[in-house]
């Protein structure tokens, strides 16, 4: 088996940036991933949907090596993660940006310091350059004037935008969003979705992966949708495929209905 790039994603026709091959992950007696196969196409937005607790967060934590699988392989470009040492994994991680479910900002730092943190840690840039980069991003995510605020002074929507700016500051190859709009009001949700789409469109080589429960946005911004069920990808396709699908699982999830194959 060689790198991810040589495989073409059947849904988008783009080359694979990330590939999960038969990944199994168990916590104690609970099997969360049960032979997961998934291709994340390069330069596109892939959205992962599925019930709470189906292992979406676990899936994206694997791709950064924050969790290690029991079986299977995970390819990121030409690298296979499961055989890597911790030190090499740390290097792979620096190619990623991640926006955490609850932003995970450092609460001992200001907005500016939070966003600058990855730059300060990994790149030897003069302060003027750091300032220029960070302020450009602050403007881009619409947080003018918030430089010196600390996370406890920000609203949920502002924090997520700081999280996004921090994830983007080193121009990552991949960006992962864990429920970027959960807990935001409808207006902020729309603004965040637009920000995600604009971020992708401004960077043709960026690969975005989003975990979302917000079906409306999913159908709007995704290039590819993968639906997880019982530790596997049950359905994958374009938004059109999902809109048209008559599969009971898909219909139930899109309609948010209590009747169907998924039981509460």
């Amino acid at each position: 088996m060689s790198g991810a790039d040589e495989v073409i994603d059947p849904v988008t026709g783009a080359p694979a940036a990330i590939r999960y091959v038969n990944v199994v992950k168990t916590f104690g007696k609970q099997t969360v991933l049960d032979g997961l196969n998934l291709i994340i196409p390069r330069g596109k937005i892939t959205v992962i949907i599925g019930r709470s607790g189906t292992g979406k967060s676990v899936t994206i934590k694997h791709v950064m090596g924050l969790l290690r699988p029991d079986k299977g392989q995970i390819w990121v470009g030409k690298d296979e993660l499961t055989r890597m040492k911790d030190r090499d994994l740390r290097k792979v991680r620096t190619r990623f940006g991640i926006v955490f479910q609850d932003a995970a900002l450092f609460d001992s730092m200001t907005v500016f310091e939070n966003i600058a943190f990855p730059l300060v840690e990994h790149e030897n840039l003069p302060y003027a350059k750091v300032k220029q980069k960070v302020e450009a991003l602050i403007a881009q995510v619409g947080l003018h004037g918030a430089n010196d605020k600390v996370p406890s002074q920000l609203s949920g929507g502002m924090r997520k935008r700081v999280g996004l700016a921090r994830a983007l500051v080193r121009d990552p190859e991949y960006i992962l969003y864990d429920e970027p709009t959960t807990g935001l009001d409808p207006i902020l949700t729309a603004a965040m979705d637009k920000l995600i789409r604009d971020t992708q469109d401004a960077r043709p080589t960026l690969t975005s992966v989003i975990i979302s429960h917000d079906m409306h946005a999913v159908l709007d911004i995704a290039d590819k949708i993968a639906m997880m069920f019982e530790g596997k990808v049950a359905h994958e396709g374009s938004p059109e495929y999902f809109k048209k699908s008559m599969d009971p699982l898909v219909r139930q999830f899109l309609a948010g209905s209590l009747d169907g194959p998924m039981k509460v």
Binding site: R93, F106, P118, H122
Partner: peptide, 16 residues
Amino acid sequence: AMRVSEQIDALDAMGV
């Protein structure tokens, strides 16, 4: 508090 609010995961994720 950094552990439960995923700040430690965030450090790890940034390669720190």
